[in-house]
Design a protein around this nucleic acid. Structure first.
Lengths: 187, 187
DNA sequence: GTGAATCTACCTATCAATAGATAGATTTCC
DNA sequence: GGAAATCTATCTATTGATAGGTAGATTCAC
C-alpha cells in the first residue's frame, strides 16, 4: 500500500469516526493531504470504495489486535475482558467512537455494499463472543450475552464521546463483568 | 403547531432516524410534503433550528411516555423495566433507532447547539435512571448501572437495526434485568 | 543499452447535481 | 385589509465525479 493511500485511509477513518460518513468529503481529505480531490479519486474511484477499504482495514486490525491480546488466555472471562479492552482502547486512543459503530448507526443511509460490510463486522464480533463465552452456558444464553456485551460497548462509546466522559465506558465494562462468566461469577 | 410543521417534523424525524442528519435535506422533506424547499425554510429558518425542534419534541414525548407508563409503579425493577420498554417501543414501532442515538453518534459533526441538546437528552436519561435505581445501592453503583443500561439500549437499537433482527434488543433487555435491582435480584 | 511503451501518481479544468439559504411576489383565509 | 403560508426564482457553496494531460519511474523488445 502506497504512502498516500495509507494517509488517505488514516484521514478518512479519523474524520468519519468523528463526524460521520456524509460529513466527510473527498475535498476535506485532499486538503488534509495537500493534494487535489481528483487525486483522491485516482486511489478510490468512488466514495463507497474508500468506505469499504476502511471497513476492511478496521476489521482486520481489530481482530489482529484481539487475537494478539487474547493469545494464551484460556479463561472465558479473561478473553471477554480482552474484547472489552480492545473496544476501550479504540475509544481512548483515538478519542473517537468505533468506525463501525458510526457506520452502523448511519447504515440505512449508506451504499448497500458498505452497509453489508459493516453488518459483517458486527456479526463477526458476535460470533467471536459466542465462541468465547463459557461453554457451560446454553447456546441461547451465550448469544444473548454476546448481544448484550457488544451493544453495551457500542453504546458506551457513543455516550462517552457525546458526554465527553471516558469514565463511562470504564464503568460499563466493570459492570459488564458481572455477566461475563458462568453463574458463580456473579458475586 | 400547524399541520405542515407537524408533518415536517414527522418526515424529518423519520428520515434522520433512518439515515442520519447529513443525509437529509430540505428538498427531501419538501418533496415528501409536496411543497417547495423555500416553504420549509419559512417554518425552520436553518436546518439547525429544525434539528433542535426535533430533539425537543422527541425528548418531551419520551419523558411523557415514560412518566405515563411508570405512574403507580413503586418497585425499582418495574420502573427500570418500563424505561427499557419505552426504548424498545421506539425501535419497534418506527423500525428506526432513537433520534438521539443517531444524533449522538454524529454529534461531533453537528452544529454545537444541537449537539448540546442531544447531550442534554442523554444526561436526563441517566439522571432518571439514577433516581429510579434501588436506593439501597451506593450512588456510584447507581451511576454505573445507569450508564450501563442506557449504553446497552442505545447500542442494542443500532445492532438490531443494522442486523435487521429486533430480537436483539429483547435479548439485551432480558439480560439487563439481571442488573436491575438490588443484589438479591441477580438470581 | 537504448528507445518505445507503459505505469504511477498526480495535475488542471470542468461537470451536473445538490446543499442551505434568501428576496420578493402571490395566494389563502379570517 | 392583513397576516400567514406558500410560491417563483435565484444565489453561493459544495458535492462526487470525470476528462484529459503530464512528469517521472519502470518495463519490455530488439
Amino acid at each position: 500500500m502506497s504512502d498516500t493511500v495509507k494517509k488517505l485511509l488514516d484521514a478518512a477513518e479519523d474524520s468519519i469516526r468523528l463526524r460521520g460518513y456524509h460529513a466527510v468529503s473527498f475535498r476535506d481529505l485532499a486538503d488534509e493531504l495537500e493534494i487535489k480531490s481528483a487525486s483522491v479519486h485516482y486511489h478510490f474511484r468512488h466514495k463507497e470504495d474508500l468506505g469499504q477499504a476502511l471497513v476492511k482495514r478496521y476489521s482486520d486490525s481489530f481482530f489482529a489486535s484481539l487475537n494478539a491480546k487474547s493469545v494464551g488466555l484460556t479463561e472465558p472471562r479473561d478473553r471477554i475482558d480482552t474484547f472489552c479492552q480492545v473496544y476501550r482502547q479504540a475509544l481512548v486512543e483515538a478519542d473517537r467512537i468505533c468506525l463501525c459503530a458510526m457506520l452502523a448507526a448511519e447504515s440505512c443511509g449508506l451504499p448497500a455494499a458498505l452497509a453489508k460490510d459493516v453488518a459483517g463486522f458486527l456479526q463477526s464480533n458476535i460470533d467471536w463472543l459466542v465462541d468465547n463465552l463459557p461453554t457451560d452456558l446454553p447456546a441461547s444464553q451465550r448469544l444473548s450475552k454476546a448481544h448484550h456485551i457488544l451493544s453495551s460497548l457500542q453504546g458506551a462509546m457513543i455516550l462517552s464521546k457525546n458526554l465527553d466522559d471516558q469514565s463511562i465506558i470504564d464503568q460499563v465494562i466493570a459492570d459488564l463483568s458481572l455477566l461475563f462468566g458462568s453463574s458463580q461469577a456473579q458475586s
